[in-house]
């Protein structure tokens, strides 16, 4: 049952899908990795984007996926400038940070790792993207049993209506306990 009827106040500028070793940007193949397995695939995507960002290697898989997704959406979007509270980040997934939670749970028996523990929250990826681009704006991480785009867009529209938000990166960002991954992100404008 659809939760919301969209008023289509917002415009979707770009759409990105990352799944099974492939990145689709606005429906066209942007990158295809040699491996579909999440670790090697994300590494090859990072290299393909020619990024130099030491912090990237410290991130958990969910943060890496969201970070790279945001890089692709922001690249070439000249209207997005750093040091701003006009860009909102609104994400959702089903597994929260369970992929990392399971790793952390294992480390408890030995010596708990603070570097793993910090990623046992789904919204850390929002922090990572915010640090990279100096985004001070509105943000929220929702948990949904399956991708409910309407919920996210409706909330984004309320941000456009009630806050400084002019642009938003919105969508689904999932890495499950079996290392299956799926990102469906949009860059929206007011």
């Amino acid at each position: 049952m659809p939760l919301f009827t969209l008023k289509n106040m917002s415009k979707i500028i770009k759409e990105l899908v990352i799944e099974q070793g492939t990145v689709l940007l606005n429906g066209e193949t942007f990158f295809k990795g040699e491996s579909t397995e999440i670790g090697p695939f994300l590494k090859s995507l990072y290299k393909h984007l020619e990024l130099k960002y030491g912090k990237y290697f410290k991130m958990d898989l969910l943060s890496k996926l969201g970070f790279l997704g945001a890089e692709i959406l922001i690249d070439g979007a000249n209207e997005i400038v750093p040091e701003t509270d006009e860009v909102a980040l609104v994400f959702a997934n089903a597994s929260s940070s369970l992929n990392t939670d399971a790793n952390y749970q294992e480390s408890i028996a030995d010596i708990p790792s603070p570097a793993v523990f910090v990623y046992t929250l789904p919204n850390i990826v929002i922090g990572e993207i915010s640090i990279r681009h100096k985004f001070y704006g509105e943000h929220m991480f929702f948990i949904q049993t399956e991708y409910n785009k309407e919920e996210l867009l409706k909330y984004t529209e309320s941000l456009f209506a009630e806050t400084n938000t002019k642009y938003a990166i919105v969508g689904w960002l999932e890495v499950d306990m079996n290392n299956e991954y799926n990102a469906q992100l949009m860059l929206c404008s007011k």
Binding site: F4, F142, Q144
Partner: peptide, 27 residues
């Protein structure tokens, strides 16, 4: 369907902000 917010230690206050906005926008 329930809305679930998991945004670290601000989650509870973020939920109030979310609910307020959902009511303001007539949902």
């Amino acid at each position: 369907t329930p809305h679930v917010i998991s945004n670290a230690c601000i989650s509870g206050l973020a939920a109030i902000v979310f609910a307020k906005r959902m009511i303001s926008s007539g949902i």
